[in-house]
Nucleic acid binder design. Structure first.
Lengths: 342, 342
DNA sequence: TGCTATACTGTAACCGCTTACAGTAAGCGC
DNA sequence: GCGCTTACTGTAAGCGGTTACAGTATAGCA
């Protein structure tokens, strides 16, 4: 394979400016004193030659890639977009590039010497929910490689910093609202995917709220909604066909809430008059939905931003913050039966 | 700065397997014959040492980063998610990493030697809409650096491959449906952002459809919707306050359609009985909207996939396909006045 | 004045891989 | 048996930066 035509290198700049390559490197990285006059000459040369340092060479020599990675199972709308935006913004502000990779149905691809993201090509990685298997986390930890978990807590005995939100509290408040303000007692819950922590904690919050109001859990009011519009739609339709008709449905997340509303309306039921529906996340579609969805606001973008902040701290060798729990907030709209707030 | 503790290198593998580093490199890259027995020994050594080649060293030596970049103005939901998914999937299948960067309000950051994405750190880039200024495109072209444009056509006299969709045809069919099936004559249009090509071509399609039906353009039925829910909402509210009441509103995109529906309903008007509304894109929220939105389906994910395919071809030195126009398709739901299709 | 700290700069040794080049051994046609 | 391929392997020269180390000049200080 023929060598590509070589682009301008640091040696060219050095020659042009009449200095050594070391000096050029120093003015670029600003990590050693260089006289103002020399620096100016060098900068002029860089400008003139349109020089751009090779990331590979720089990375090889300095052992820093200036890249962080994001590993996720799936880039699924609409939850992923805001978190990605937060991460991208954080990375940009920290002067880091962002490498993203989905593990979507390719667990095997994540091993062997073709592993997509790791110490060989990034300075640290962010793992969103199930984006990486536990054993891989163990391995990276043994290398002291910086990793931050998003919407997931670390495996036992591994102290990997995690950033997530107050799912349990948010769910509890939400269900409490349903009980105390609206007097609903038969409140159904649609679970999210198995093993998904957000789902787990939301269910705990749901249970706590019911327990606090002395309402027993009715097993037939618990079903699988998968944090997915279609699945939730089917689950709700199945309920209706079986004659199960709750006062209210806590759909687990907004996507499932959307499917829930569609199923209810398709069956001729009115929301919230016949059945109230609430979601979780407050993603983009919650507001324009008809009726506007009562939900719990999750600071999704902030999770991404905080994740990067934590990762940057780890990369710099700082002390990790074991857990960052971002607050959630009840957002009352109309699907619970309230009139829209002012 | 102390050198980080060195990880296992190709030399370690070579020693472990009793071969030269060249041989190890050859079994990894499979680009030269290696005897089966040797290859096996090398692979075992790699496995045993948990060796992972350094991307930087590899890139420096081979002048290939195995990375492609994506440059966009903003990671805005909900249009961005599917295109990103298509790109990520395409990149993954091609064995390339994906580096993403937003230029969001930082045009200056895109010059100087800190430029985020370019020949110094990627093998080629994808530019989404206004993600990169024209002069930068000119520069990259002069370097023969692989670039593919998404939802944007190349500047004059630059033959950069572009991938986009049949906006004009889609808009024309959509408006024709409004005219021919429903008999609407006063059809308003909400433009997208200035300079946005999708917006431009959709307006052309709108104009052509009206012209074909001999309906004159009424300037007061054209307004700025910004491909944005809030802006569209305000624009429609303004119309209503001025007593402008069209038969139907073509909102430019689904986001604007959402805002349009919200504004109309807030004013006590029924959709589609009083005013019909149609969008464009068929993004995630179009279906669950109430009423379900009649729109034009845009194969967003396919744009991303095709973009990567084209970029990979360019990187491999293949002949570029100047323009890839992906088909759009009318999706009839209820907001136009139709009963939902079967 | 002599000595030392400081500011600046250059030399050159890597960083970990790829690959041109060269060499060896075996296979093949005559 | 000889020259020529072909298959395989090793040697070593980069790739384009960073940075330890050393050197020079100047300033500060006793």
């Amino acid at each position: 394979m023929p060598r590509a035509k070589s682009s301008v290198t640091i040696a060219d700049v050095a020659r042009e400016a009449g200095v050594s390559t070391a000096t050029v490197s120093r003015v670029i990285n600003e990590n050693a004193p260089v006289s103002a006059a020399t620096a100016m000459r060098v900068r002029a040369a860089i400008e003139r030659l349109n020089y751009r340092p090779s990331a590979a060479a720089r990375g090889l020599a300095s052992r820093r890639t200036h890249l962080i990675g994001l590993l996720a199972e799936e880039i699924s709308a609409p939850f992923f977009a805001p978190i990605l935006r937060g991460i991208e913004k954080g990375a940009r502000e920290a002067g880091l590039g962002l490498l993203i990779h989905c593990t979507q149905g390719t667990p095997a691809a994540n091993s062997g010497y073709r592993r997509p993201l790791g110490p060989h090509n990034t300075d640290g990685i962010l793992v969103f929910a199930g984006g990486l298997q536990e054993e891989e986390l163990v391995y990276l930890t043994s290398l002291e490689f910086p990793v931050v978990l998003l919407h997931r807590s670390p495996p036992d005995s591994l102290d990997i910093p995690a950033v997530t939100v107050e799912n349990k509290r948010g769910a509890r408040e939400l269900v409490r609202h349903l009980i105390e303000v609206h007097g609903y007692r038969r409140i159904a819950f649609l679970r999210g995917p198995e093993g998904h922590e957000d789902s787990y904690w939301r269910e705990q919050g749901y249970r706590e709220a019911l327990a606090a109001a002395d309402i027993p859990i009715e097993p037939q009011l618990l079903a699988y909604g998968g944090f997915d519009q279609k699945i939730a739609q089917q689950a709700v339709t199945a309920w209706l066909e079986q004659g199960v008709k709750p006062d209210a449905i806590f759909a687990g997340d907004d996507e499932a809430a959307t499917g829930t509303i569609m199923a209810l309306q398709a069956a001729g039921l009115r929301v919230p008059e016949d059945v109230a529906v609430v979601g979780f996340d407050d993603v983009y579609l919650a507001h324009p939905l008809m009726p506007p969805l009562t939900t719990v606001h999750v600071p999704i973008e902030a999770v991404g931003r905080e994740g990067v902040r934590e990762l940057v701290r780890l990369i710099a060798g700082g002390e990790p913050e074991p857990l960052t729990l971002l607050p959630t907030e009840l957002v009352i709209r109309r699907s619970c039966g309230c009139q829209e707030e002012a």
